[in-house]
Design a protein around this nucleic acid. Structure first.
Lengths: 234, 234
DNA sequence: ACCCTTCTATAGTGATCGATATCTAAGTCA
DNA sequence: TGACTTAGATATCGATCACTATAGAAGGGT
């Protein structure tokens, strides 16, 4: 996904006259607003201030451009899964995922909803590969959370009756659903209360107290400073 | 939405050579699979076994055809909201909504996911009205559940601390999210367990026992017989 | 039988889709 | 400065989009 030539100091030939990074950001916002298929090359080039040949030369094609915006949006999917696995408890990881989603879906300077969630639904036959790619991202994140939950069960932090598959599935169902609600106009406060509601169903910890475990509700923790250059969640 | 002439016994002129009802069912399945925008007139006419002029004569245009399939899918939205308001308790209504959704999203003879949820996301500028129509359907159902919850609070069945807006929002976030999970291959058992997880967060009833209130979990209640001619949920 | 109405099929409307061939402008190197 | 390399702009590609004008086919009413 990285340009080869951009690493070399002196490029021969005419240098690019637009900023690739800011153009990518514009494209991300467009995809974020309308989804993958509903965003046309014409819209993209107009908003990015470049012509179609420049877009194709710089980003490959529409598909690659979209996947690159997704990668930028996620801040690297590994960052998300790593955050889940590194959380103090599985419950913290779940709450963190949900809260990040609620905040990310209602940013002031970003379109409502989730870039990935907005594009994962639409499924014309030609975009089946895009859909599968996005589904894979969600599955990897869900798997990370599931593994984290199972670890807590093994360590006795969560009761043995805790169903990791169910809990992780529920979390990502809520993440996905909050994106739609945000697109329909739900504000940040409502989403954060939904996060609290979603976390109410978690089994109580049974083990010893965990250092650094955060038991505060999402609505108490609106202290996040969010920008759209690095987006840690979907 | 009903044809005027179909009510009169003897129609002058050549009668329609295809079954309107079964053609509508085919169209519903296509929209259900790919969403509103990703389903083309060419796909529709081919699958329905008719030509474009016949489609437009019988159903108006693509938009009206889709809205008619949605109406058929919901079995009339009033049926859903009435079911919510008539439930024994708000908690029963919520569980019923979630269970119906989990079952409807994983029917054996129907596409995975939800017809409405699959089309509510994709939002090209030209389909903004469709999107708003679907969002209105969701909002009306959510409002019905919210009213039902507030009634239980007033009657002392739910504690005064119960947040109706939050609880209703959470339910429909899960409904929406389950549709995506189903499209990604989640099976019925997983969705039903997610329903149980979602209902775990509900506040405990504080009032006297309600006759007919059902406290069973969704996974115990897989006894539903589902067909796709009447679809009570999204 | 005829007329009249409606349906169906062929074909094609302009618009837009993603993607490019071609040519010119604008730079870096020797 | 001249040779080389790449970016940008114009124009357009074939395919597909939702939709329809036209004309022939097929039935009911009398």
């Amino acid at each position: 996904m990285q340009e080869v030539g951009s690493l070399t100091a002196g490029r021969i030939g005419r240098p690019r006259s637009f900023d690739r990074e800011s153009a990518l950001k514009v494209a991300m916002h467009l995809f974020w607003n309308h989804g993958y298929e509903a965003t046309s090359i014409a819209e993209l080039t107009q908003a990015m201030g470049i012509t179609p040949p420049s877009l194709y030369a710089a980003f490959g094609d529409k598909r690659q451009l979209f996947l690159e915006t997704v990668d930028r949006y996620m801040g690297g999917i590994d960052a998300v899964t790593k955050g889940v696995l590194d959380a103090a408890t599985a419950q913290d990881a779940a709450r963190e995922l949900l809260t990040s989603a609620a905040l990310g879906h209602t940013g002031e300077d970003t379109p409502p909803g989730c870039l990935v969630a907005s594009s994962i639904i639409s499924s014309s036959v030609s975009a089946a590969d895009i859909r599968e790619e996005l589904a894979g991202i969600r599955r990897r994140m869900e798997a990370a959370l599931r593994v984290r939950i199972e670890r807590d069960v093994l360590e006795g932090i969560l009761p043995a009756s805790a169903d990791a598959d169910m809990l992780a599935g529920h979390v990502f169902a809520v993440v996905q659903g909050m994106s739609t609600l945000a697109k329909d106009g739900a504000d940040r406060a409502k989403l954060l209360r939904i996060v609290d509601c979603a976390m109410n169903g978690w089994p109580s910890p049974v083990g010893p107290r965990i250092d650094g475990a955060d038991e505060g509700t999402a609505t108490e923790r609106t202290k996040y400073a969010y920008d759209d250059t690095r987006r840690p969640s979907r």
